[in-house]
Simulated scan of single mutants.
Amino acid sequence: MKQAHHPELEEMTLVAVMGALSDPIRIGLVRVLADGRERGWGELRAPVAKSTLSHHLRVLRDAGITRTRQEGTRCFVELRRGDLDVRFPGLLDAVLDVAHSDDVGAHVGVADDPRLA
């Protein structure tokens, strides 16, 4: 993986963020990452092919929602909560609240999640 581009705060647009959050898999990934922990891509579980999961992670990164870090051959991802809260105050909390109450993205998790076994 070449060095990934992460939009600066002023480059993040509402249209890009809302577009990235328009998919249940991506909302599920945001729900998983909302705990503040950096996750290895290999830890993430979703009912899609690995290449499709990679696409979803790229969409989130390109919108500025996540930050990806490469360490050797492994990639790690984390939610850019602080940046999102500064640029779009309250948006992430609102999305997460509704996603939780409507169970959107609940089929996405991490490798040790018993719900996905």
Rank of each mutant, 00 (worst) to 15 (best):
V108M: 06
I27S: 03
E78K: 04
R31D: 00
H6E: 06
A117L: 07
S22E: 05
T52A: 13
A111H: 11
F88K: 04
L9F: 07
L92A: 03
D83P: 08
D113T: 04
R45L: 09
G109W: 05
W41G: 07
R67D: 01
L53F: 07
T52Y: 08
L44I: 12
L96M: 15
A16Y: 05
L29I: 15
D62Y: 01
G19W: 10
A111D: 07
R37H: 15
E71S: 14
A34G: 04
D103N: 09
V95I: 11
G36S: 02
R61P: 08
E11F: 00
R26H: 04
G82S: 13
T52L: 07
L29Q: 02
A106T: 12
T73S: 14
L84W: 08
G28R: 04
R80F: 05
A94L: 12
L79W: 00
W41E: 02
A16K: 05
A111M: 06
V104S: 04
I25N: 07
D103H: 08
L84T: 04
A20I: 02
V32L: 11
R115Y: 11
I25F: 01
V59T: 14
L84H: 09
L9E: 12
V77S: 00
H6A: 06
H56Q: 15
L84D: 02
T13S: 15
P47V: 04
D62K: 06
E43G: 07
G36R: 04
L60H: 15
G28P: 01
T52W: 08
P24R: 03
R45E: 09
V86F: 08
R67L: 03
V110S: 12
E78N: 03
T68D: 10
G19A: 13
R58W: 08
P89S: 11
L92G: 00
L44W: 06
S22G: 15
A34C: 03
S101N: 12
R81Y: 00
A49M: 14
E38T: 13
T68G: 10
L33V: 09
M1P: 13
T52Q: 13
T13F: 09
H56V: 13
A94I: 09
L29V: 13
P47Y: 02
V95Q: 01
T13Q: 10
G105D: 01
R74S: 12
A20Y: 07
S101Q: 15
V15I: 14
E71V: 09
G40M: 02
R69G: 00
D23C: 13
V15G: 10
E10K: 05
R37T: 13
V95E: 01
L96G: 14
A94P: 08
R87I: 02
R115P: 05
P89H: 09
V95D: 01
L92Q: 06
M1V: 03
G42M: 03
Q3C: 06
V17K: 09
V104Y: 00
G64T: 06
S101W: 11
L29E: 04
D62Q: 11
G19F: 10
L14A: 15
A49I: 10
A46E: 08
R58P: 02
A4L: 11
V104L: 04
L92E: 00
G109L: 01
A99V: 10
D93G: 14
R37F: 11
L57G: 01
S101I: 08
D23Q: 08
M18N: 02
